[in-house]
């Protein structure tokens, strides 16, 4: 009984063969999972890497402003649209309650996307491909991105960031 002290020889009780088979199966499976994750990191192509750095909110703000100034091609609903050069550094800034700027990217080209927030945590969720990253203030989360399909993507904030959280939606165009 599980509510009474065990038999005196509980430590020496042999394990039933069926349970032994299960134990071995489970153990092997655990090893497979353990190896699979780092292995997929190396051969897979969609992993976050270790390219992050600390940055003050102020510096990130300035860098984003400069980036917008240098690459701005228009505006939509008051949010600047920028068209950066392929291969360049691009910035996306989370701020209660909006993402800016709107990016215009080219399919098949790579960009260095710097993601951060200048106030509280935000969540960077790209719809409809459902890719999700965390925007943490005072940290530059650097992602190397290569859009593969042309179209319009929306960025949903998916980390609670205040009462206006659900209004925090941005955009990316890929052509």
């Amino acid at each position: 009984m599980s509510v009474t002290p065990p038999d005196k020889h509980w430590w020496d009780t042999p394990i039933h063969t069926k349970e032994k088979i299960w134990l071995m199966t489970a153990f092997v499976w655990s090893i497979v999972l353990t190896v699979a994750m780092p292995a997929l990191h190396i051969v897979g192509e969609q992993n976050t890497s270790s390219q992050y750095s600390r940055i003050s909110n102020q510096d990130f703000d300035t860098l984003t402003d400069r980036f917008i100034e240098a690459n701005k091609i228009g505006e939509e609903k008051g949010v600047p649209i920028v068209e950066p050069k392929p291969g360049s550094d691009v910035y996306i800034r989370g701020k209660q309650f909006g993402w800016d700027p709107i990016l215009k990217l080219k399919a098949g080209q790579s960009y260095k996307l710097h993601l951060s927030s200048v106030d509280v945590n935000h969540g960077f969720s790209v719809f409809p491909i459902n890719m999700n990253f965390q925007a943490v203030p005072s940290w530059d989360n650097l992602l190397t991105v290569t859009p593969t399909k042309a179209g319009m993507y929306t960025i949903i904030c998916n980390e609670f960031c205040g009462i206006g959280h659900h209004a925090m939606i941005g955009k990316i165009y890929v052509e």
């Binding site: 890719m131 999700n132 998916n158």
Partner: peptide, 9 residues
């Protein structure tokens, strides 16, 4: 790690 990207939050 890989699948978390499409699940996080």
């Amino acid at each position: 790690e890989q699948l978390n990207i499409i699940a996080h939050n």
